[in-house]
């Protein structure tokens, strides 16, 4: 489904360059649940941004669903992201003072989908995630755990090829962390492909495959026994 070949990401000018990703080769198939581990500064977010088409590699090839991403025009990147990638961020990144449902349908609105149909779909997803009762609350009126579930609902509404979660449990307590992990596990059981970035081992172990970065180098890539919730 996605293939990274000889990916480099180099920040800064010659002289004081930072090699954030150093020759990464990686391929992820549909239905996988992968965790990307590594210390702070090891290059996890850089890799995420490239996989999420938010940034371009300095060198290397990235093929997404059979399309070489180098061929995607700058203007089309937004629609490609909208179609293929669902993001879940550490900081939730919801629109403030806006209702839960309006946040969930946002990617669909940008896609030009009919609002009524989009809302119906969003309500179903919110119900599945157990927060349909908060659908018409403003995002600043609900808890952190609920906010992260809204963010997951927003990603799901896109029906993306891949869900990318960057430290999704970084801003919530341990009880809520477990709930979020359970949701991701359930989604993977249903067939969704998930890549989760984390620096915590016990969260990384919830995945089925574990990848470890160190100073931009891929130092570990193995199938693990999933520690299910």
């Amino acid at each position: 489904m996605i293939t990274l070949k000889g990916i480099y990401k180099i920040y800064g000018d010659t002289g004081n360059e930072v090699i954030a990703l150093n020759n990464i080769n990686l391929s992820i198939e549909s239905g996988e649940y992968v965790s990307i581990m590594g210390a702070s500064g090891s290059g996890k977010s850089s890799l995420m941004h490239i996989m999420g088409l938010l940034d371009k590699p300095t060198q290397g090839e990235y093929v997404l669903d059979g399309v070489n991403t180098i061929d995607i025009k700058e203007k089309e990147l937004s629609s490609v992201r909208n179609k293929y990638i669902g993001f879940v961020f550490q900081a939730f990144n919801l629109l403030p003072r806006t209702t839960v449902i309006d946040n969930v349908i946002l990617p669909l609105v940008y896609r030009g989908e009919n609002k009524d149909i989009a809302e119906k779909k969003a309500l179903e997803i919110l119900k599945k995630l157990g927060i349909d009762k908060r659908a018409y609350f403003k995002t600043n009126q609900i808890s952190g755990g609920q906010q992260q579930r809204v963010a997951i609902a927003r990603a799901l509404a896109q029906e993306p090829t891949l869900i990318l979660a960057d430290e999704p449990t970084g801003n919530v307590d341990s009880k809520t962390t477990l709930e979020i992990i359970k949701i991701l596990q359930d989604l993977n059981d249903e067939g969704h492909s998930i890549v989760i970035v984390t620096h915590e081992d016990d969260i990384g172990d919830r995945a089925k495959r574990k990848i470890r970065l160190k100073d931009g180098l891929l130092i570990e890539d193995k199938i693990i026994r999933q520690n299910r919730v």
Partner: peptide, 15 residues
């Protein structure tokens, strides 16, 4: 941040 989010989830420059 709002603009970044909108773009990440599908807003075009023109949007």
């Amino acid at each position: 941040r709002e603009i970044g989010l909108r773009k990440a989830i599908g807003a075009k420059n023109s949007d």
